[in-house]
Amino acid sequence: MHLRGIEHVVRIPEWHLTTAEILYRLPDHPAVLQSFIWQKVDRAPAFPELHGFLEFWRKDIEGQLHSVRVASAALWRPAEFTYAEGVLHLH
């Protein structure tokens, strides 16, 4: 049995789906920003896969990075509710 690609079948607790929106400058038009969406299973909060991809981008792709916005299922927490001790009336 081949174990390659097993992460799609077996869920590893520390690894979660991670999405990154990468904004970069076009080489021929530096005033224009382009968006690229990267998505992979990665481990938060270190994000080794994302850091590896960004290092590859810096070395091999001409578009200069502007910003990276990351969202991960590991970073989300359940909503916290607190009960109010009184009532506030406006108007």
Rank of each mutant, 00 (worst) to 15 (best):
V9K: 00
V10G: 02
I12P: 01
I12T: 12
I12R: 03
I12S: 07
P13C: 00
P13N: 05
E14I: 11
E14G: 09
E14L: 09
H16F: 01
H16E: 02
L17G: 15
L17V: 11
L17P: 14
T19P: 09
A20P: 06
E21I: 03
I22T: 05
I22F: 03
I22L: 10
L23E: 07
L23T: 07
Y24N: 05
R25T: 02
R25W: 05
R25I: 01
L26R: 13
L26Q: 13
P27D: 04
D28K: 13
H29Y: 12
P30I: 05
A31P: 15
A31V: 11
A31E: 15
V32C: 04
L33Y: 01
L33N: 07
L33G: 05
L33W: 03
Q34L: 04
Q34E: 10
S35K: 14
F36E: 12
F36V: 10
W38M: 05
Q39W: 04
Q39P: 08
Q39H: 10
K40P: 06
K40M: 11
V41C: 13
V41P: 14
D42K: 02
R43D: 07
A44P: 08
F47K: 00
F47G: 03
P48H: 07
P48V: 04
P48T: 03
E49L: 12
L50T: 00
L50F: 02
H51Q: 14
H51I: 06
H51E: 13
H51N: 14
L54W: 06
L54G: 04
F56E: 09
F56H: 15
W57L: 10
W57G: 03
R58N: 08
R58I: 02
R58V: 06
K59G: 09
K59F: 08
K59H: 15
I61S: 01
I61H: 12
E62F: 10
G63I: 00
Q64T: 11
Q64C: 07
L65I: 12
H66N: 13
S67F: 01
S67C: 06
V68N: 08
V70Y: 03
A71L: 07
A71M: 09
S72N: 03
A73N: 13
A73D: 10
A74K: 07
A74G: 12
A74R: 11
W76P: 07
W76I: 08
R77E: 08
R77P: 01
P78T: 05
